[in-house]
Amino acid sequence: MGLLNRLDDPYNIAPGIVLGTMEDLLNWGRARSDWYLQFGLACCAIEFMALNASHYDFMRFGCIPRTSPRQADFIIISGTVTLKMAERIKRLYEQMAEPKYVMAMGSCSICGGPYWKQGYHVLKGVDRIIPVDVYVPGCPPRPEAFFEGMMKLQDKIIKQKIFEKRARLAEEDAKLASQHNENNNIHLPTGWTEVK
């Protein structure tokens, strides 16, 4: 549960004091104030506009639309991605700053949607060009389904480990580097694991 729910926990030190890690606090802040890039492609974008209106208020999740990708935390691909648009989406994704997330909303961005068979200009799933975190199915998905997807994204952010990234990944990096050198017949003096 959330950080604030632990304030009245009787097994803790005293009411009003919470023990936790710095990572907990930062993740709690990041998950509850995700700012998204205002970007709509097709029919799912209309459903997304209805989500922002007063009946299904999306701002209560702490999400505000940002117009520039350099200021956004996550991007919602809502609608069909065509091959002409695919390069632009890749560029938008690369302009966002880490940590960034992608939500694929609607059937067209998951697998090409109703245009999968003869669509010569449709990209069959946006995960062919950018890595996706949450998939929300539907054509278009109901607002309630979208909220479930948003809550799953928040769960993912809360469980993320963000400190000491280099130390954790250094072992994996070393293994990949030695494999690369093996494959390309590069032999360095012993003690070196750097990739040429």
Binding site: L83, A86, E87, K124, R128
Partner: peptide, 9 residues
């Protein structure tokens, strides 16, 4: 293929 992206499903 179109510019490195696979087109059919």
């Amino acid at each position: 293929y179109y510019k490195g992206i696979k087109v059919p499903l």
